[in-house]
Design a protein around this nucleic acid. Structure first.
Length: 580
RNA sequence: GGUGGGGUAGCUCAGCUGGUUAGAGCGCAGGACUCAUAAUCCUGAGGUCGAGAGUUCAAGUCUCUCUCCCACUACCA
């Protein structure tokens, strides 16, 4: 009945999640809004038998990295080395199944970035212009707009940022601030200097971009509307270089070091998306894979489906800026086919904030509860339609009710009962009846729905179906009641136990993309070989386990979260209500 | 200010191109069962669908006005 039960055409699917910035360990919102859903999608597509490549990397350039390194008292290179390793480890701790977790600072990305730059310039899409920037003598650096503060020329607010006044909301230009100072050092010894930068002439690409956007049929409305809005307002040419030391050196049209551009590098938003490609090249170099079939439409990538995952703030860059780079090169690069944008996870309805210590970061979270529990909760409550509030109470509820009670207890009760009454083996005897027909139909209907939701990247709905499938197992056991039949008709009891064990196996198989560790525990306990753990074999699941197969009962799959733990976490992390 | 998203049961959220008594999970109340991590199963009580007006035989679903929250607004990424 579903496409999961008939052989599918294998697809080649390239998946990227927005690159996490190097500036610190990421919080749960970053995890839930790009890396984790991309991972789940990658795992599902692999289980369905597709050829999947999931690429991610740290985004390492830009002013914040330099400032963070300075604060830590180490070089930017050393800082990025440390933080890349920290992020790689926290990704591994959350079981993110990257095929490659690279770095935007890799030589491959630098070479690609410079190549794109000279090609775009050759095509007349880049030109040098002079602009005015704020320079801080005390800091010895140019300051991005956001790092310049001063008195707002509009409302006289004294701590207005150079890009926007937090008091009156007006968009500002830092050179208009009254009595400007550096927010980095607090120094008022700042001046306005003229500086030369490269501009990407996005305005020249506007018509091509519009045509391409209008061709897209699989983008969510959010993405299309954001892209068209920018196009309607008229794309501005965008500067793609900055006055910084840390980054990729600027080249001329021939690809040689560009005269007069010492101390300037490419803007991080120019090179970060290119790092998707660079990281793929690094993956290929390391593993012997072919990168071109994923990215070059003249080398097979025309058969690749490219899916991007990101937060809603990233949509414009992925639907306009990066496509400008790729299309403007005139080279046969693969463009995104579809993208999934997420809203934010909020902390009790407010923002996550590092400075006011609001929220939970990945390294802290994994110390509190296992990866599986976070993965389940964050995906079951993914911020798909709007921002989604994180609360400890909801987290506790997800873990205890969905995982421990509905799934964990089901596996436990059926395996323990098998051990006590049927010698820990899949029993023979009896024949399937009404109860079995009911549960098979119920589960098959929901399986088809679940898979179609995953394919549509509707994670909340997919997980809701998964949970309903687990719940159907409990309902089945209540109906079949093998413990009652056992007293008078052991064969009848055997039917219920056999079905129960087959349900447990199915539950483990479908749970793999979300809670891989618990799923493995279940499948190992039931002796399911790896080759039977894929998602092409749902058909016939109800009789999948061979009669006589010895099974064990897994250790407690999910420890419950106690009320006193919630109280302690709330105290530790300041949850429980908005903070001023 | 502009653009986009959102305001639906105590809580977190579904509700497609308008159509029978507005749904789910959690929580709560009652009952059943006893294989199981005091788990599970069944039943039930909870909503003037942010406010107001309009279109329509019919609106949570379309239009207008108002209001509250969030994001983006191009040099933070």
């Amino acid at each position: 009945m579903s496409d999961t039960q008939t052989p599918q055409t294998q697809q080649r699917i390239l998946i990227t999640s927005a690159l996490p910035y190097i500036n610190g360990v990421k919080h749960l919102g970053n995890l839930a809004g790009s890396m984790l859903p991309a991972d789940v999608y990658a795992r599902v597509m692999r289980l369905l038998g597709h050829d999947v490549l999931y690429i991610c990397a740290t985004d390492e350039h830009g002013t914040p990295a330099e400032l963070a390194a300075a604060e830590a008292g180490i070089t930017v290179k050393a800082y990025c080395d440390q933080m890349h390793e920290a992020q790689r480890e926290s990704g591994a701790a959350f079981d993110l199944s990257y095929d490659w977790f690279g770095r935007s600072s890799s030589p491959a990305t630098a070479a690609l970035t410079q190549s794109f730059s000279s090609t775009l310039e050759k095509n007349g899409l880049i030109e040098a212009r002079i602009s005015k920037q704020v320079y801080s003598n005390a800091d010895g650096r140019y300051l991005p707009d956001r790092y310049v503060e001063g008195t707002c020329p509009n409302c006289a607010f004294e701590a207005a940022r150079g890009d926007q006044c937090d008091n009156c909301g007006k968009l500002l230009d830092p050179i208009d601030l009254i009595d400007p100072y550096s927010s980095v050092s607090g120094s008022h010894d700042v001046e306005i200097r003229e500086t030369e930068h490269l501009y990407l002439k996005q305005s020249d690409m506007s018509d091509r971009l519009r045509g391409w956007v209008n061709e897209q049929t699989s983008w969510p409305a959010l993405a299309t509307s954001i892209a068209l809005k920018w196009l309607d307002e008229g794309l501005l040419d965008r500067s793609i270089t900055r006055d910084l030391d840390w980054g990729i050196p600027v080249v001329d049209v021939e690809g040689n070091p560009r005269p007069g551009f010492d101390g300037k590098v490419y803007y991080v938003w120019f090179d970060a998306p290119i790092a998707y490609i660079g990281a793929t090249q690094d993956w290929a170099a390391e593993t012997g894979g072919e990168w071109e079939k994923w990215w070059r439409t003249d080398k097979g990538a025309d058969e690749t489906t490219y899916v991007q995952f990101m937060g809603k703030d990233n949509v414009a860059f992925h639907t306009l800026s990066f496509p400008t780079t790729l299309m403007g090169s005139g080279e046969p690069w693969k463009l995104v086919d579809t993208l999934k944008a997420f809203n934010w996870v909020t902390w009790y309805g407010g923002k996550f904030s590092t400075s006011s210590k609001r929220g939970v970061f990945m390294d802290q979270a994994i110390a509190l509860a296992p990866s599986d529990t976070w993965r389940w909760h964050l995906m079951a409550n993914a911020p798909e339609g709007s921002d989604a509030a994180f609360t400890w109470e909801e987290f506790q509820s997800s873990v205890n009710s969905d995982l421990a009670n509905v799934l964990g207890n089901f596996v436990n009760r059926i395996t323990k009962y098998t051990a006590s009454k049927f010698d820990a083996a899949v029993p023979d005897g009896g024949e399937a009846g009404e109860d079995e027909a009911w549960v098979v139909d119920e589960v098959n209907t929901r399986l088809a729905l679940m898979v179609s939701y995953f394919e549509a990247r509707e994670f909340r709905k997919a997980l809701s179906e998964m949970r309903a499938i687990w719940a159907a197992g409990n309902e089945y056991l209540t109906r079949a009641a093998p413990w009652t039949h056992y007293k008078t008709d052991v064969d009848q009891a055997a039917v219920g136990v056999r079905m129960g064990l087959n349900l447990a196996a199915l539950f483990g198989i479908i749970a793999q993309p979300i809670i891989p560790n618990a799923a493995d525990n279940i499948l190992d306990a039931l002796g399911i070989p790896d080759k039977h753990r894929g998602w092409s074999g749902f058909k016939g699941w109800e009789t999948g386990l061979p009669v006589g197969l010895r099974i064990t009962s897994p250790d407690v799959l999910f420890a419950k979260i106690e009320d006193d733990e919630v109280a302690a976490w709330t105290a530790q992390f300041g949850g429980g209500g908005p903070v001023e």
